[in-house]
């Protein structure tokens, strides 16, 4: 199984000159043909991590292996087999779309024909247009076309759908799925939960330079509690709720977090029925990736506050 890992990252660290540590001991591996998503808020360290995998910078610590090579020191061996979609930019603004593709094709072994590359992302009609006249979404698609030029074995996509409209996003997802089905290993970063949820075989949630949780989307959500929310009538104090429910009340609003949603919800409803209490705005939902994500982000925010309080003293 280990031999099949296309990307292997161990205890990866990246500190910038100013002392800021953007990547702080990240480890994961991606198997051949797998689609792995790195999910996180802006500033979580996703792009800093991906740049190390792409061999654009030397890690401050830890190791990266892509297709068995160090992408920084053995750039020559890895480059022809990987495709990279940068987070933004990278086009001379006065070249046309076709000229940009031709420039990159000259630096890509076994490059697709310009026409074919533009067809893939639906930019054929824009081939004679200067890059500076493209919309943000069109630039993203050009970027994707360049990443796919050499039919890469490993594809790095840094926020591939940021700036795309709903249709463009669906088209890109469709294309990425087809590539994965064709055997391409894909690592993508995103801050869209639904993107990670619908595309990824496995994902990692990144926060403040660390990976908080890794697994399939189902595994990641399974670690999170389900949630029941409702509002009690004015004359019913939260203290009357059955103790076994472990409810947290904020005024009349009550929240119950539980790993056993069905059992706790049944108990709550039975109690309400028997006590003749009307539960307002009742809402019960199982854990979602969104909650896992927000949980992790919120935990980070608390840490910040704690640190700030300490500093203030």
């Amino acid at each position: 199984m280990m031999n099949d890992a296309v990307i292997e990252v161990e205890e990866l660290r990246r500190a910038y000159a100013g002392g800021f540590t953007a990547v702080d001991g990240v480890s994961f591996s991606v198997a051949r043909g797998e689609l792995f998503a790195l999910l996180g808020t802006n500033g979580a360290g996703k792009t800093s991590t991906v740049e190390l995998l792409e061999g654009l910078a030397r890690p401050s610590g830890g190791t990266v292996r892509v297709l068995g090579h160090d992408p920084y020191t053995e750039r020559r061996s890895v480059r022809p087999r990987m495709g990279v979609m940068l987070q933004e930019g990278g086009f001379p603004s006065d070249l046309t779309v076709a000229e940009t593709v031709r420039m990159c094709a000259g630096c890509t072994s076994g490059a697709r024909a310009t026409q074919e590359a533009l067809d893939l992302v639906g930019l054929t009609e824009r081939s004679g247009v200067r890059v500076k006249q493209l919309s943000g979404g069109e630039k993203r698609r050009l970027d994707l076309a360049l990443a796919l030029l050499g039919r890469p074995e490993v594809l790095f996509l840094d926020e591939p759908t940021t700036g795309l409209d709903a249709e463009g996003r669906r088209d890109t997802w469709e294309l990425v799925r087809e590539l994965r089905d064709g055997g391409t290993t894909v690592l993508l970063t995103t801050h869209y939960l639904e993107e990670a949820e619908s595309l990824a075989d496995r994902l990692a949630i990144m926060h403040r330079g660390r990976i908080d949780v890794t697994g399939t989307p189902a595994e990641v959500t399974a670690t999170r509690p389900a949630r029941i929310r409702f509002v009690l009538p004015e004359d019913v104090p939260a203290g009357r709720l059955p103790l076994s429910l472990r409810a947290a009340a904020d005024g009349r609003a009550v929240e119950i977090r539980t790993q056993r949603l069905q059992r706790d919800l049944s108990e709550l409803l039975r109690w309400a029925e028997e006590s003749n209490v009307e539960l307002g705005a009742l809402d019960a939902r199982s854990a979602s990736l969104e909650e896992a994500f927000l949980d992790i982000a919120a935990r980070g925010a608390e840490t910040v506050e704690a640190v700030e309080t300490v500093d203030a003293r």
């Binding site: 022809p80 076994g110 039919r151 890469p152 294309l175």
Partner: peptide, 22 residues
């Protein structure tokens, strides 16, 4: 963008297929 035929996206090239390197 139009849906692509699988022929275009299929099978990433492996080192052995002898594609001319730049």
């Amino acid at each position: 963008m139009s849906t692509v035929s699988t022929g275009e996206t299929e099978s990433p090239r492996s080192r052995e297929t002898g594609v001319r390197t730049t």
